[in-house]
Design a protein around this nucleic acid. Sequence first.
DNA 1: TTTTAATTTTGCCAAATGGTAAAACCAATC
DNA 2: GATTGGTTTTACCATTTGGCAAAATTAAAA
Lengths: 205, 205
Amino acid sequence: MEEERNTEQLILNAAKKVFLRKGFDGARMQEIADEAGINKALVHYYYRSKDKLFNAIFTEAFSTLIPTIEELIEKEQGLFEKIWGVIDHYIDMLSNNPHLPMFIFHEISRNPERLLQFASNIGIKPQKLISAIQREIDQGNIRPVKPEHLIVNIIAMCIFPFVGRPMISGILMGGNQERYQAFLNERKVEVMTFVLNAIKIDKPQ
Amino acid sequence: MEEERNTEQLILNAAKKVFLRKGFDGARMQEIADEAGINKALVHYYYRSKDKLFNAIFTEAFSTLIPTIEELIEKEQGLFEKIWGVIDHYIDMLSNNPHLPMFIFHEISRNPERLLQFASNIGIKPQKLISAIQREIDQGNIRPVKPEHLIVNIIAMCIFPFVGRPMISGILMGGNQERYQAFLNERKVEVMTFVLNAIKIDKPQ
DNA sequence: TTTTAATTTTGCCAAATGGTAAAACCAATC
DNA sequence: GATTGGTTTTACCATTTGGCAAAATTAAAA
């Protein structure tokens, strides 16, 4: 009884590891089975096809990457707190799942129809965030950045270090892994400061 | 005689299209042949293997994405002009090659050893740029951003709209393609303004 | 202990895929 | 017009890979 779930979870963990690292096209059912320490046919026994198994992984990964942002934004009151909440959460989460964004972006890029599955779940919430930012601008609390750009800027600065890790680490840091790790540790504060300076109004005093 | 080059180029163009869209694992030699309107065996006649053909594409793509940045930085004098040069060039180039960054980042992520091939070509130049930024900080011309972060921020904000196109267009813009296009058109100025505000020193007057 | 149901393994298949040998074709040269 | 060298197509192979049927195993129920 407990074993079922155990095996099922074993497969999921293995599949996640393999799919996230290699993508759908690069992943092999055999490798997933090996990673799970079981037989290939057993993978098919629990998840009938590669597609089905992939969908399970993709759905979970997508949920990890996206909906949290909505809650985060609702949670905090002020705009700056909201922004810090997003940066703080995202960089933590990505540090624990470094392959996640590349996986999601690549798979969606290869097969954009996947997004449609989730589009309905998400609804119109982005518009609410955009309006909220616009309100801050109208009230003179922050500089007049186009809200869509501000949002993309923040997300971009959080995600890019992970999508581009080998390039940053290899080229910018000259292959020095410690330097990359230090870079990651500084990242939250650096991004927050950067955004803050970019949008805050100069107080003449 | 001229035909050779024509066919060879035909294959390269087709391969570029297919590899950039689907990645190495997702690409099929047959599809490349179809795309070029020729026979599959002919592809092997010019480029012996899928790997060889892929390397040709990857090398060209990598060169398009990276070394230009070095020249750009040398070209302009002031830091702000350098930054504008990078933003201007990158967003133009990526508009013409939207799949390029996803392709490069994904393939490097899947096979980081590839970077080593190019590491030697690149040398220590990033350090020069980092020093240049540090100098500006020391001279009190810009705020004290850690240079590595400033560089990553700028690149991230330029590249992300292309890596994350389906997400931005689908979720943030509610699937409205025109809005995404408008977003891209505004992008250069928005990024430049954002960076400028983030690093410039408030002049009390 | 026997029966039954679920789980796991074995052995295998059909399709897809990268690759190649050899034939066919074509253009220029002798 | 035959020969030669490069190009293109045809036909095919070996391997990989997703998937499955059926046997084997295990564990629980009767």
